[in-house]
Amino acid sequence: MTQVSGLDVLTGELIQLEGEVLPLEPLSFWGGVDSQTGQIIDARHKSYGICLTGKIVQMPFTKGSSSSTSVLLECMRVGTAPKAMILDRPDPIVVVAMLVGMELYGLRLPVLLANNAPK
């Protein structure tokens, strides 16, 4: 268990989280994550095979497909999503999955901005 903190992307408040932190290189959820298992399926990704479910996933930004929002939302609905996401920038691909998850299912996915994010 590790303690991490970041700024809540919605409120700008400093938030503390505890859990297993998984640092990742940029990932496309679509074509990169199986929403049914939460596993990384992009064989070209350095963390191929690792499961995101329940982890605090930290990456600078998402790459690749604009369908990633749907895949992340489906992970939230199925229960395979990360516990939280920490990004360098407020990437709309992730932020909107969080917003729609709240609207549609009342589900929460904390999205934080890294304290030490490069500008």
């Binding site: 749907s70 895949v71 939302l73 489906e74 609905r77 199925v78 407020p90 709309p92 932020v95």
Partner: peptide
């Protein structure tokens, strides 16, 4: 909400949109 997270001070009108959301990725979509 997205605008706030991005630090936008205002919105801007658009003239057209292209939708990727028509692709099925499970029940959520």
């Amino acid at each position: 909400e997205l605008a706030k997270t991005l630090g936008a001070e205002r919105l801007i009108p658009i003239t057209q949109a292209h939708i990727d959301g028509c692709l099925y990725h499970g029940q959520a979509s």
